[in-house]
Design a protein around this nucleic acid. Structure first.
Lengths: 203, 203
DNA sequence: CTCACATAGTTAGGACAACTACCTTTGTGA
DNA sequence: TCACAAAGGTAGTTGTCCTAACTATGTGAG
């Protein structure tokens, strides 16, 4: 058989296209896993995502508007979701005296419990990553961070909590290494954060 | 300030966790980009995905059941989607004589046109990848393929079209290199396919 | 000080996604 | 030939996520 038989246009694919295709497949896996998890707990995907987010983030991020940005949805959608979660007794609202318009969302015991259980929904994706060599992990992370940085800059992803887009981040003058002005330390690849609680967006 | 102030539990994150978080962020980007594209063309995300898929795949894959597996949805959902696309004159159905139950889905001119235009929806993700070094690209691809392979094996992703899950694939006896028995050639990293038209699932 | 504007969140209404359950027709193999 | 599997479709439901319009509260310029 002539080998050119196999050279269908989309198969002569560049490495870049294959990377995009792979990322797309992995995206699908996240969707599938989240969906499975949501059926198990009788919650919607977005409800689970909100619960998990609340488990890991500080007060000023536990608000409707922030969540809307975080998940690229409208405030209306998040407002609905929060209402539902409240009816299910998974969260409570804490109104602050200095701004009565907004409130902080807190997990109830039950909510925390579910959030912890569901936060492992991506364990299937984690397993193969655990098995990579340390060097491979570092490399992979750096490459992914590079992609996200670009997505941040181009406005596809609005929320920014990683070092590369932080006001405290710089390349040190001496050796051009990533450096955090808040922590006062050089950031080796494994120290780079993708979800830093101290993140301050660049001006 | 004491440095331990920053060591919030979720911030002492392992490299693996950060990789998962990064992949999750990129997944979100795909969702956002697809959603933007769908608004622009007055189509739903799944409709666009189906159109793009039809652009690139052969007849035996252009059927309702295959699409349902491909996108991890029920046949009912795809059936609906196809009906809508037909009403919009973007696809036609070709019934085959030897099995009148099923049919092949073809793009109309208009459908092909839209499929080609929307197939670039992920260009924002591609740009930063283009800028990586050749070695980095190869490395990244191999790591992603490793993850997908695991997701295939564990059943999260049902459809398989990549070399690692193919009956024609083996590690050659001499040098343990990936080898394709159909193409009769060694598969260097850049030759590994993620969406091969000749893919034959392992028994 | 006040008035226009911005911001936080909510409500209502609608399009559509995607499911389950059930059905028809057709193919297949013991 | 007859039971069963496979391809696809229909109906009805639930939930997502949007837009548009709204309330109420904070803010800042003149």
């Amino acid at each position: 058989m002539d080998q050119s038989d196999f050279n269908l246009s989309h198969q002569n694919q560049s490495t870049e296209s294959k990377i995009v295709a792979s990322l797309e497949r992995i995206s699908q896996a996240f969707r599938v896993l989240l969906w499975q998890e949501s059926k198990e707990f009788a919650l919607s995907p977005i409800q689970i995502q909100v619960l998990i987010f609340l488990l890991n983030h500080s007060d000023e991020k536990r608000k409707v508007s922030y969540l809307a940005d975080e998940f690229n949805m409208t405030k209306a959608t998040i407002s609905d979701t929060v209402k539902t979660l409240e009816q299910k007794n998974l969260i409570t609202k804490e109104h602050e005296p200095h701004d009565t318009r907004s409130y902080i969302i807190h997990l109830t015991e039950k909510g925390k419990d579910i959030a912890e259980k569901t936060s492992f929904f991506s364990k299937e994706i984690r397993t193969p990553i655990d098995n990579l060599s340390a060097e491979n992990k570092e490399n992979l992370l750096l490459n992914l961070i590079g992609i996200i940085k670009h997505l941040n800059n181009s406005g596809v992803i609005t929320i920014q909590r990683m070092c590369m887009t932080c006001a405290y981040f710089q390349l040190s003058d001496q050796d051009n290494q990533p450096y955090c002005k808040l922590l006062n330390q050089t950031l080796s690849p494994t120290k780079l954060r993708v979800d830093c609680p101290e993140h301050k967006p660049k001006a």
